[in-house]
Design a protein around this nucleic acid. Sequence first.
DNA 1: TACCGG
DNA 2: GCCGGT
Length: 229
Amino acid sequence: MIRKSVGQSESDFAEKRNDEREDKDKEIRERILTGAEELFLQYGFRSITMDEIAKHLGVSKKTIYQHFADKDEIVCHCIENHLDYEKCTANEIWAKVSNPVEEFVIEAQHLKFTTHNIHPTILFELKKYHPKAWAIFQEHKEKWILQSIIDNLKKGMEMGFYRSDIDPDILARLRVEQIAMGFDPTIFPGQEFVLKKIQLQLLEHFLHGILSDKGREFLNLYLQTINEQ
DNA sequence: TACCGG
DNA sequence: GCCGGT
């Protein structure tokens, strides 16, 4: 009995120390990922080297490679983190807005905010040099973004903000590809076009194609009150 | 930090 | 020559 309880408390200690080490590992992993993401977003994946990530964080490359197998793994985790974050903010926006038109507008503002200062060729670097991360992004687009836009369109039709004769499954895909197109530097060369202006134009064009009279009235009034603030 | 190999 | 990986 006694031996058992001593043994247990020893293993408790060991377990506790183990937990603490795992927490530390998690912490440094997250630090590496956030640091890398900052650099990637600003300069792109290709131009940022492992040396620069290490220097940016004030750690050695060795430390980084103790936590990640290679650069590709870091890129993939950055993408996953970023997509989780996007899901969270989308849910927060959905909880706050009063109708689907407002959701589109707030989403676009958020997109404008998050894409402000990001490197325009980032998505095409993913496709070319990090196909695994690209696949993660594509799946997110296909499953999650598409579905939330379909939901938005259906809800807007129910509420009478969108025309009743639109096909949500078709137009949701149009909208998804439209957003992607806005990021395509082969279509909109970065030197000539400003990302946020492109996305805003595309959204307004899309919205005016699906709005009912009621929806258009709301949008005009809504944009007016926003611009006054 | 220096070095190798792609 | 550069950069990921050791």
